[in-house]
């Protein structure tokens, strides 16, 4: 029963187009010239339509809420095995980088455990991972049926990966989220960050490491950003820190909350980053 269910899911699963798994499946098949990697800030900050219009290149946003560098590495490594993008934008979020809970969430990639070696590698980093969980095929696809069901029922087609946020930050109820002052850029995440950089250098893919705008940032954010910057520069790449970019910083009309631009802010920022791509292209 489990064997048959496993074969069925192996065949059906890659066609899921809805929800988180739909996003990952579409990202794994992306063939665009510009690809955006990152977490929720990437997903909400880069509109591929704006980037494409400004650069004349096709673009897809693979950003996925809550999943940072480990997921970015697995996806990037699998993507470039079948397609070489012109430009990759890696959005870096200090909050995701220091969040220890990101390791706990890695079991979400279990359905890719047997088919993609890079996902297999990162699933092993989940402290709750055990080979016992892979004994039953049906358990590997645990809780994926809703996305499958919705994909069939709604018949949704793949979009460009961007999710614009419509609300505007309310300054009267705003409470800033501060990074934990002693929070660290942990060594494992740093290792995977370096792996992404090294892969892009080996495959001669133009990698732009970007910190996109925040409404407000604190000393701990700066410390993490400085660490990332020195790492990127040591590899001979440029680092783009827009975390306090003057046109957007502390301007509530461009933000949904402290860490996320709204649709208006995202379009403005996407234009800016497209100009950056054009400039670096001409250099």
């Amino acid at each position: 029963m489990d064997f048959l269910a496993g074969i069925l899911m192996e065949n059906v699963f890659p066609d899921i187009t809805f929800g988180t798994y739909g996003k990952i499946n579409t990202s794994l098949k992306a063939k665009q010239e510009i690809l955006i990697l990152g977490s929720s800030r990437a997903q909400h900050h880069y509109d591929p339509d704006v980037v494409s219009a400004e650069t004349g290149m096709t673009c897809y946003n693979t950003g996925l809420g809550g999943y940072g560098l480990l997921y970015n590495y697995a996806l990037f490594n699998e993507l470039i095995k079948q397609h070489k993008p012109e430009v990759v934008i890696l959005d870096l979020s200090p909050n995701v980088i220091i969040d220890p809970k990101t390791y706990m969430k890695l079991n979400i990639f279990m359905p890719y455990f047997f088919t993609y070696s890079s996902f297999n590698e990162i699933v092993h980093l989940d402290p709750d991972f055990s080979k016992f969980k892979t004994v039953f095929k049906i358990n590997v696809y645990n809780s994926t049926f809703y996305d499958l069901f919705r994909g069939i029922v709604s018949n949704e087609t793949a979009d460009n990966g961007y999710k614009g946020l419509q609300a505007q930050l309310n300054t009267t109820t705003y409470i800033p989220k501060r990074l934990i002052p002693e929070g660290k850029f942990d060594s494992l995440k740093k290792e995977y960050f370096e792996k992404i950089i090294d892969l892009s250098i080996q495959r001669e893919i133009r990698l732009l490491c970007v910190v996109s705008p925040t409404y407000e940032k604190f000393d701990a954010d700066n410390r993490i950003i400085d660490e990332m910057e020195s790492l990127v520069k040591s590899k001979g790449l440029d680092f783009y820190d827009y975390s306090d970019y003057w046109e957007l910083y502390k301007k509530p009309q461009y933000f949904k909350d402290q860490l996320h631009l709204n649709d208006v802010g995202a379009r403005a920022f996407s234009k800016l980053i497209a100009e950056e791509i054009n400039n670096s292209h001409h250099e």
Binding site: A5, N107, K133, N139, N142, S143
Partner: peptide, 15 residues
């Protein structure tokens, strides 16, 4: 019981 086991493995919350 195989059905219950399958349901548990496929949609149970393991974390």
């Amino acid at each position: 019981y195989l059905f219950l086991l399958t349901i548990t493995l496929s949609i149970g919350v393991f974390n």
